[in-house]
Design a protein around this nucleic acid. Structure first.
Lengths: 253, 253
DNA sequence: CCTGCTTAGTTGCAAAAATAAACTAAGTTG
DNA sequence: CAACTTAGTTTATTTTTGCAACTAAGCAGG
């Protein structure tokens, strides 16, 4: 099977091919599928989960806030994950250490241009990463009660929130919303914001201990507060790009 | 957008098309993406999880056992889920009450024809449904230690198994592997096969009770065994097409 | 520089849940 | 009708969880 760089246009009826080496005819209908990726970039700001949106450059919905997304470029992208990384980097300047496939959304109605599908990925970053990227056109909007999004982006965001909240109840996912270093009370507050309920301090610390993904930073304490300073922690090196699971939840009751 | 019934073979280098009427300037790169769906149809036979495979009709890998799959037909399929339903029905005669999106697999290397993506769905059915469909070309193969599959179907099956096993540890998913009616000991055996470990009888029954998805069939007991007969159960009507979750696992230890 | 305030982090205990084992129930087989 | 086998329940033990009280350690203010 040889790879061709130039794409000859498909034959029409009057075309009489001389060399016939393609075993299977690709259905023409395939050409009408619009293939894109979208990224749900989430961060925690002012104690609420925020989604990063961008104003659309082009029609349809030019000027409307929407999820960062774009066409898959088979010539550039090794796969759809790579496409998502590229789109996110090009449109926001951000490279997220945590980027996971959410689901594929598809159908005739979701894009006015025609039958489309979008492979969606969600990313979690601390707000500093978004600021540091220096793309002021990135708009953060509270994730709950979000409205007015084009296409089916509303549903996509809802699915991402459900996934993140569910995963937060049994995994270490929320650490990706914290910066490089953080205290346990801070991490607990992040979990509580995501889960929408207070957590028991002892149980929470037991669970995090069980995950075995954090290490205290020798002698580093949080400064500047008028009370006992808290120990600073960071992700253990081998977990900087993964997440840890348990079979039991974190939630009270 | 006109639909043509005959598919002329694609041109090769020596083919000089005379009529060129492509109307839309969709980005060229898009046209090179092969869009398919694949279905991982699982069942439980002889106390082991089996995957349904079919011999491929066409190149590439003609004659090789592979997952049932096919092109998305935007003119027929409302979305990719509908495409998966259609493909499964057309190729195996089966309509599964449980069909869920697994993930999308993509990239340059997975299909020798070029850059492709496949939105994969997994389905669970009792073996009777496969038999009743009367497509003898459907081959059941033990899911573990499966080998020799074309494309990246090996990875896809592995991902489906991981998903099903994981989901079995906290949901009622396995009921879809049982028939219309079944006993609790039978259901427990199904869970144990999937999870690969024995479960505590009392804990198991508590958990199923908690799911609140089953109802005993009045006066219906399993017959024909040389011991105390077990109560027959069925899914409550409102759950015939869904599944129930809890936050706690089923597994021992 | 001592007292009080606030939050960090730990300890011990009580309540709840999960597990194991033992027991009763109800059929078939010989 | 006794023996056997599995269904289903009860009881006891262990494990896990959640609460509350406690100690620790900083700062602020007099």
């Amino acid at each position: 099977m040889k790879a061709r760089k130039a794409e000859p246009p498909p034959c029409t009826e009057v075309c009489m091919p001389v060399i016939l080496s393609t075993p299977e005819p690709l259905p023409l209908a395939m050409n009408t599928i619009i293939c894109t990726v979208d990224v749900i970039l989430l961060t925690l700001l002012h104690d609420s989960l925020q989604v990063a949106l961008l104003r659309r450059d082009h029609e349809p919905f030019a000027g409307v806030l929407a999820l960062p997304g774009g066409y898959i470029h088979p010539d550039q992208d090794g796969d759809t994950q790579a496409a998502a990384v590229r789109v996110l980097r090009d449109k926001t300047g951000i490279v997220s250490p945590y980027l996971e496939q959410l689901a594929t959304f598809s159908g005739r109605g979701r894009d006015p241009r025609g039958w489309s599908l979008s492979i969606c990925y969600y990313a979690l970053v601390p707000p500093e990463v978004i600021e540091a990227a220096g793309h002021p056109e990135v708009v953060l909007v509270p994730a709950d009660g979000i409205a007015g999004l084009p296409f089916d982006h509303q549903q996509i965001v809802a699915a991402a929130l459900e996934r993140v909240r569910n995963k937060s109840s049994y995994s270490s996912l929320p650490v990706y919303l914290c910066g490089e270093t953080f205290t346990l009370p801070r991490l607990q507050a992040v979990y509580e914001t995501l889960l929408g309920e207070p957590l028991n301090k002892v149980s929470f610390r037991r669970k995090i201990e069980e995950f075995d993904i954090l290490e205290p930073i020798e002698g580093a304490l949080e400064t500047g507060k008028a009370h006992r300073p808290a120990q600073l922690y960071r992700l253990k090196a081998r977990y900087r790009n993964r997440l840890s699971l348990t079979d039991r939840g974190l939630s009270t009751g």
